[in-house]
């Protein structure tokens, strides 16, 4: 046959090309790892160096103490502190306080930050590794990498992720902030954003803004490795604190392993009975007007450009 006279038979061609591709894959894999490391390095703030023990940040929220700031007649101060400290775009409450109904007709207040799950569904589904765990267990987002597919928002069972549907209107000083995943300011259009446990404050050895902002001292920041937690006023032994107060995690059954514990109960410290009609205020923004451009006109420059 004519084909056999040629130098390259089909079998040789197939084995040769498969072998070459395999070789190429093997040879290029270290290169990809190097590439990824380089990218990760640009995408994160300086990693804690030296002999400091690695932290494992967690939060404890004492529901007995939280009263939604109705007693002092202001919006929840944790949310307000968060908004002010991170130039949070209008409409997003990275830590949000919900009024949950109790069986007896009363209500209790439940602050909900991002739960920083150890087994985070958002991290699992991200197609570009824009959302990731740092060494201290915080789920961060690199807004320079996020493609805005919003699969993580569909995957998050706690609905604690927000999307920048447009360029947010922020006060001018936000433009001076130096962006890092630890401090995602200013917010980037078309990307997903959320609470990051105030990683920039923790890095500087301070408590998160919501913890210091809480007038009731209901929020505790803890370190699972060192087994302590603090609300700014007292320091407790974390494991004992959780045990003695029957701590639970929200939607534990989903297996997401959240890093936020709640201490159950309400009214022990500050009650809210069915006949309590004090107003629960929503947070306010000093910037952003109506947030993003919600009203499309026909013209690209819009009515307000």
């Amino acid at each position: 046959m004519q084909r056999q006279n040629k130098k390259l038979t089909r079998r040789q061609f197939v084995t040769g090309s498969v072998g070459a591709m395999g070789l190429l894959a093997i040879l290029s894999s270290p290169f990809i790892a190097v590439l990824n490391r380089a990218r990760a390095a640009t995408g994160t703030a300086p990693i804690t160096e030296g002999k400091k023990p690695t932290r494992a940040w967690c939060m404890v929220i004492d529901l007995k103490k939280c009263e939604g700031c109705v007693t002092i007649g202001v919006p929840p101060q944790c949310t307000q502190a968060c908004i002010a400290g991170h130039f949070v775009p209008q409409g997003q409450q990275w830590i949000q306080v919900y009024e949950v109904e109790s069986p007896g007709g009363g209500t209790f207040f439940m602050p909900t930050p991002c739960y920083q799950c150890d087994n985070a569904p958002c991290v699992n589904v991200c197609p570009v590794a824009a959302t990731y765990h740092n060494k201290e267990g915080i789920v961060l987002i690199d807004h320079r990498r996020c493609i805005g597919c919003r699969l993580c928002m569909a995957a998050c069972p706690y609905q604690r992720r927000f999307f920048n549907w447009g360029t947010p209107k922020l006060p001018p000083e936000a433009a001076f902030a130096e962006y890092s995943p630890f401090y995602p300011v200013p917010a980037v259009k078309g990307t997903v954003i959320k609470c990051m446990f105030c990683a920039h404050m923790l890095e500087a050895g301070k408590l998160p803004l919501c913890v210091t902002g809480c007038p009731m001292k209901a929020l505790y920041m803890g370190d699972l490795n060192e087994d302590i937690a603090s609300n700014g006023a007292e320091v407790v032994k974390l494991s004992k604190f959780l045990d003695e107060n029957d701590a639970f995690r929200y939607k534990e059954g989903l297996g997401t392993q959240p890093r936020v514990w709640y201490l159950p109960g309400h009214g022990q410290a500050f009650g809210r009975k069915p006949d309590d009609h004090r107003e629960f205020k929503t947070p306010t923004w000093t910037w952003g007007d109506s947030g993003f451009n919600h009203h499309p006109g026909i013209w690209p420059w819009g009515e307000d450009f």
Binding site: S29, I32, N36, N124, V125, C126, P127, V128, A129, A130, R145, C146, I147, G148, C149, R150, L151, F163, N164, K189, G190, T191, V192
Partner: peptide
């Protein structure tokens, strides 16, 4: 549908890293 269609090739760039768990990959 993407918020940042300008970064669409990120999916290819980070594919080796994410194809293990990301259903979108």
């Amino acid at each position: 549908d993407m918020g940042r269609p300008d970064r669409i090739f990120n999916i290819i760039i980070y594919w080796p890293q994410r194809v293990g768990t990301s259903s979108l990959s």
